[in-house]
Simulated assay, not measured.
Amino acid sequence: MLLAERDTPEGLLVSVCDAEDLGETFEGDGVSLTADPEFYDGEAADADAVTDALARCSVANLVGEESVGVAVEAGFVAEGNVLDLDGTRHAQYLRL
């Protein structure tokens, strides 16, 4: 997984993407998502690093089976809120 963290005025923004999905475009149910390298490329990370980043962030965007799976397993994203886009998964997390 690739993990990027950005400090914003609204808090920490985290993006997580399965490496094989980087640069790919996925579509489904009228939605199109490109895993843009400018946004999703980051450092290689394991599940513990991703979970730690999700625990600290205000907003997260996740693309890929493994990336979304870590967020679901750790309780940050409900399975019912995950989008299936052309064979991969996408989720967003927002802490209010």
Rank of each mutant, 00 (worst) to 15 (best):
Glu10Tyr: 12
Glu5Gln: 13
Asp84Glu: 15
Phe26Ser: 01
Ser15His: 09
Arg6Pro: 10
Gly64Arg: 00
Val50Leu: 11
Ala35Gln: 02
Leu94Thr: 12
Phe26Gly: 01
Ala45Val: 07
Ala53Ile: 06
Cys17Tyr: 01
Leu83Lys: 12
Glu73Gly: 07
Leu12Asn: 11
Glu43Ser: 15
Leu85Glu: 14
Ala71Thr: 11
Asp7Trp: 10
Ala19Cys: 08
Thr88Leu: 04
Thr25Ser: 09
Ala53Phe: 05
Ala44Val: 10
Asp48Arg: 14
Thr8Trp: 07
Thr25Gly: 02
Asp46Thr: 07
Gly42Ala: 02
Arg89Tyr: 08
Gly80Phe: 11
Tyr40Asp: 05
Asp52Thr: 14
Ala60Cys: 11
Ala47Asn: 05
Asp46Arg: 11
Asp41Leu: 08
Glu65Ser: 14
Asp86Ala: 12
Ala47Leu: 07
Glu5Cys: 05
Ala55Leu: 06
Gly30Tyr: 14
Leu62Pro: 09
Met1Gly: 05
Glu20Gly: 04
Phe39Trp: 08
Ala49Cys: 05
Ala55Gln: 13
Asp84Trp: 08
Leu13Val: 10
Gln92Val: 15
Tyr40Ser: 05
Pro9Arg: 12
Pro37Leu: 08
Asn61Ile: 04
Leu12Cys: 12
Asp21Trp: 03
Met1Gln: 03
Tyr93His: 14
Leu94Arg: 15
Asn61Trp: 04
Gly75Ser: 00
Gly28Asn: 09
Val82Gln: 13
Val77Gly: 06
Leu54Cys: 06
Ala44Met: 05
Thr88Pro: 03
Ser15Asp: 00
Val68Lys: 04
Gly30Trp: 13
Gly75Asp: 01
Asp36Asn: 08
Ser58Trp: 07
Gly80Tyr: 12
Val31Phe: 12
Glu27Ser: 14
Ala55Gly: 15
Gly23Tyr: 12
Ala4Cys: 07
Ala71Pro: 14
Phe26Gln: 03
Asp7Ile: 07
Gly11Glu: 01
Asp21Ile: 04
Ser67Arg: 05
Val63Tyr: 00
Asp52Ile: 03
Phe26Asp: 00
Ser67Met: 07
Ser58Gly: 15
Ala49Tyr: 01
Asp18Ile: 02
Tyr93Gly: 04
Ala35Ile: 00
Ala44Thr: 13
Asp48Thr: 14
Asp21Tyr: 05
Thr25Val: 02
Leu22Ile: 08
Glu10Ser: 14
Ala35Phe: 01
His90Trp: 03
Leu2Ala: 00
Gly11Ser: 01
Glu24Gly: 11
Ser32Gly: 13
Leu94Asp: 06
Leu12Met: 14
Ala78Lys: 14
Gly42Val: 01
Leu12Ile: 09
Leu13Ser: 10
Ala74Tyr: 03
Glu73Trp: 06
Phe26Trp: 02
Asp18Pro: 01
Glu27Tyr: 00
Ala35Lys: 00
Glu27Cys: 04
Leu83Cys: 11
Glu20Ile: 06
Val63Trp: 00
Thr34Gln: 08
Ala53Asp: 09
Thr88Met: 04
Glu66Tyr: 10
Leu33Phe: 07
Asp36Ile: 01
Arg95Ser: 13
Leu54Lys: 04
Ala91Glu: 10
Asp18Trp: 00
